[in-house]
Structure formats: C-alpha cells, structure tokens
Design a protein around this nucleic acid. Structure first.
Length: 184
DNA sequence: CGCGGGATTGACT
DNA sequence: GTCAATCCCGCGT
C-alpha cells in the first residue's frame, strides 16, 4: 500500500494523500493485534473476536476503524480472507489541500503544493485530516462509501522497516519489523 | 452498570 | 529516547 493514493470524499471536497507509513497486524497469533486469540491477552477484555474487532475477521478490502485513547481514530484496511483476522494500519500520508469534488482530477494534484507533513504524520492526525471516524467501520473501500485507494503511480524509492509503535505488551511479537516506511 | 486500558499525541530530555 | 494527559467505550458482571 505504500505509495498508493488514499482518497476521501466528504462534504463536497476531495482529500487525497500518498500513503507513506503502514503497519501490519497479522492473523490470530499476532500478540499485538486486537484480534489475537492467543496468550494471556487473548482472554482479556477487548482482545480476540469481539463486536469491536469483528471487522478484522471479515472480508478483505473493508475498513476497520476503532477509537483509541477516547479521542483518536485509527484507519485500517482488512487484508485477508474471511475469518482470518489481519489488517494494515495506515499511519501516515503526504497530503494536498482539499479540492472541490467538481474540480477533482488526480492530475491537478501535481500543480498543488503538498501540505506540511505535521498534519498527517500519525494515525490519529491522519484520520482527523481525512474526516474519518467509526461511521466508516465495516464499510468496503469504494467510491460509493467515500473512501478508496488508487494504485500507485510509481513505487517509493526505498522502503525501510521498523518495529510497530506502542505494542510493548506483545511478547515475542513486540519487535517484529512490520512497520513499513516509504523513503523518497 | 462500573471498571480499566489503550495500534496516540505533544512536550520534554 | 521518556512521560503523562486524556476519556470513551468494550467488556464482564
């Protein structure tokens, strides 16, 4: 997904950005995942298959959104087949100023200056900018639903990996290099 | 219905 | 790198 273009249609405007940072949450044994079925946390509240995480067990291409710390939303895309919980968290994007829907064409973005990275350099801030909240949870990525992703025009020059953020509790999965950062 | 924890952020060293 | 403010809501009772 790095380098692909995230597009949001909301209140007469188009918001667009190139995805620059992601994290993978991989299956029922990933101790960092909300959907993990293993280990002590699997038996704790809000882990495993619950009403909140049900989306992760659904079909790929759907949108998993949850509220974190009571105030931020996080955008994830479900990536695997039904009943196999996996998703990609979109952590950051390079965005442009919103464009009126009637004027929108991807080519126009080339003539606009990208906005400062500070607006969308974290998953909570990214959702704020794109006006994304839980009303989109379980929806399919689609133009109809106002949120979709276009293939990348060109791949990132380089991709680095790093451990995922904020998952110190995840045991042997804590340091898995499943955070992906586009460089260039 | 009450408790507890968090896939963050911003300020700071 | 560290730290804590913050508060909603999922979950177990």
């Amino acid at each position: 997904m790095l380098g692909c273009i995230l597009i949001r249609k909301y209140h007469g405007q188009i918001y667009a950005g190139v995805i620059t940072e992601t994290e993978a949450y991989c299956g029922p044994h990933d101790l960092a995942s909300h959907a993990c079925l293993d280990g002590p946390r699997g038996r704790r509240a809000s882990r495993g298959r619950t009403p909140r995480t049900a989306t992760m067990f659904g079909p790929p291409g759907h949108i998993y959104i949850y509220l974190i710390y009571g105030m931020y939303h996080c955008l994830n895309i479900v990536t695997e087949k039904n009943n196999y919980p996996a998703a990609v968290l979109i952590r950051a994007a390079q965005v442009w100023p919103p464009i009126a829907i009637k004027n929108f064409a991807l080519k126009k973005l080339r003539f606009l200056a990208p906005l400062p990275n500070k607006l969308t350099n974290g998953p909570g801030k990214l959702c704020n900018f794109f006006h994304i909240d839980r009303s989109l949870n379980t929806a399919a990525l689609s133009v109809k639903n106002g949120l979709w992703i276009l293939p990348r025009v060109k791949p990132p020059r380089r991709i680095t990996t790093a451990p995922r953020v904020g998952v110190d509790y995840a045991g042997k999965y804590r340091d898995k290099p499943w955070r992906y950062i586009a460089v260039g």
